[in-house]
Computed example of a mutant assay.
Amino acid sequence: MELSKLTTESRNPASTMLDQMTIMEILQTINNEDKSVAFAVEEVLPVVKRVIEKTVESLTNGGRLFYIGSGTSGRIGMMDASECPPTFMTSPEMVQTIMAGGNKAFFQAVENAEDDENQGEIDLISRNLTKNDVVIGITASGRTPYPIGGIKYAKKIGAFTVGLSSNTNSLINQYTDEGIEVVVGPEVLTGSTRMKAATAHKLILNMISTATMVKLGKVYENLMVDVNANNFKLKERAKNILMETTHISYEKAENVLEETNYEVKPAIVMMKTNSSYQQSQSALQICNGNVGQTITYLLNNKTIE
């Protein structure tokens, strides 16, 4: 598809006089356009659901989730991936981002890096990609060579592949297992896909990582019980989570978390089932880290050592 024919490259009739608008008119125009993004995301939820189901399956079997992109697309992937370890206590390897131009490109544009399809393959090879992994190629236009090269390689070795774009019939999705084409329409600033397209992609990546981690047992109720409490703020959050779920005092929560080395999951299980730290840890292992299932298991089986 020619670049000029892409929705993401079209002129937005609502902003053709952008340079003559007052600041408030510019803000209102951008805001009005941004309001449409969530509705565009809603249209692709069935596809996102299928992607999440496959991602949960892959990560349960020891696979990893890779985002691959260039420019804004790569930076959005990094924003999502980098938050997984502190939020869900995942290893840095579980969710990764591969960026055209390497890590330096996260901070400063690397010219022409996005045009090298072969480099996308090379960079995925360097991560020892396997058939158990999931690779999501992010490209607003749907035609960026770098992520397409990565997707082609991932598909060849049997990994689950996804294209995330903002145009219909995207080129990248000729090579993927699933295509998430979230069409947000022309940008207020023509071709500036760091705006609506990027916003839509961030919303979708948030959905994929969050829902996946929920289904992997890293959330209890709506709380981040796998939080990596390695600083003052997160230790306080851990105490608040324990107090919220078990209705104990601040002092009691602090004492219990000291015993569990600030691991929230066993602390909740201990308080909910009157079990020891060792019992809660053993039961969590049996229940694959799912707090709700572990509580039910222990309440019905007190003989676990």
Rank of each mutant, 00 (worst) to 15 (best):
V219M: 03
K235L: 09
K202Q: 14
V225R: 02
L216M: 09
K215W: 08
F232H: 14
E254P: 03
R237P: 10
I180E: 10
K196V: 10
Q278Y: 04
E251S: 12
Y262E: 05
G185V: 07
E221S: 08
N231C: 13
E244I: 03
Q285Y: 06
P266F: 04
L223C: 04
N240R: 15
F232Y: 13
N228A: 14
K233Y: 12
A197V: 13
I268C: 01
I268N: 02
A267V: 03
G217A: 05
V214K: 02
E181W: 07
Y220F: 15
N230A: 13
L223V: 04
S209M: 07
I204M: 09
N230W: 08
I248V: 14
N222T: 14
A200V: 11
I241E: 07
N261K: 11
A238H: 09
Y250W: 08
G179P: 02
M243Y: 09
R194E: 15
L205I: 11
N231H: 12
A211I: 12
I180W: 08
S282D: 05
T210V: 06
K196F: 12
S275V: 00
K215D: 14
Y262W: 13
H247E: 11
N255K: 15
L223S: 07
A200H: 06
Y220M: 04
Q281Y: 02
K196S: 09
K252W: 04
I268D: 02
K233G: 11
M243Q: 14
S280C: 02
K196C: 08
T273P: 01
F232A: 12
S275Y: 00
R237E: 12
V188T: 13
K233H: 13
V269C: 00
E187N: 14
V214H: 03
V256T: 15
L242Q: 04
E221L: 06
Y262I: 08
I180K: 05
L205Y: 11
M243C: 07
A283L: 01
Y262K: 03
Y250M: 07
C287M: 14
V269H: 00
T246H: 05
I268Y: 01
I204C: 11
H201L: 05
I286T: 07
S276N: 00
K272G: 01
T260H: 03
M213N: 06
V184A: 12
Q278K: 06
G185C: 07
K233Q: 13
A197C: 15
Y220T: 01
G217R: 02
K218H: 07
E244C: 08
K218S: 05
S209T: 15
N240Q: 12
K196H: 11
